[in-house]
Design a binder for these strands. Sequence first.
DNA 1: TTGATTAGTTCCGAAGTTCCGAACTAAGGA
DNA 2: TCCTTAGTTCGGAACTTCGGAACTAATCAA
Lengths: 117, 117
Amino acid sequence: MRPLFHPAIEDIQPQAILHALSDPRRAVIFARIRSAGCVEACSALSAMGDRIIPKSSLSSHFKVLREAGLIHCERHGVEMRNRSRCAEVESRFPGLLAAIMGAYASSIDANACRTGE
Amino acid sequence: MRPLFHPAIEDIQPQAILHALSDPRRAVIFARIRSAGCVEACSALSAMGDRIIPKSSLSSHFKVLREAGLIHCERHGVEMRNRSRCAEVESRFPGLLAAIMGAYASSIDANACRTGE
DNA sequence: TTGATTAGTTCCGAAGTTCCGAACTAAGGA
DNA sequence: TCCTTAGTTCGGAACTTCGGAACTAATCAA
């Protein structure tokens, strides 16, 4: 297993962030890591609504988030600890993550309204 | 040629916007339509830096932007008029477009700095 | 040690998406 | 009517994503 690559803050590209978060499952994963403060094992995130994301897909979603510069991953014993790089990304692209995550949150709310939840 | 589909404002999804703008060429096209106020023919946007985008690719980029709800297209005689739907998108997802386009603008500036332009 | 267990990665084929040239359509002249 | 301009659709090649099977790496118990 090769060591994990994390881009330097100045190498983070807006298109990589948009691409990473344009998949709603990755957006959910990122939202949970972001709101949980800093640490969560990958496997804790495999249940997505009513279906389970296979390990291999989860692993590649984490890779996309990591290489976009959105999260930092570190091996701790047998499991992986993931923390968001929100503060760094915020300093480079002010308001970007808040706007994106806010848009997702409001579209979920709007949907819940329409389906009467 | 089938009629052009434009999503209603309440059907616009954040993932579609992020996906549409995660391609830097589409982001440039959108930035130009957005800053040009409202109207531009598709072909006016085919020169992208030093290379030319083929018509067929341009057409599908416009389709992605249109179906994401970012632009409104209308045939006027032989050409197409495109205007941004910024105001509508802004009312649904406040701050989103400004943050995304701001991120692109600042990453281009940062790159220009590094390459000494 | 060694063997079992847990957590994640890599490989690879199938399915899906994007790219772009060629052929097409649609509107507006000459 | 035919020509030109502007854009769309088709279809095959190239690329990406998905997910099961096999793998690696750390930990623990015997």
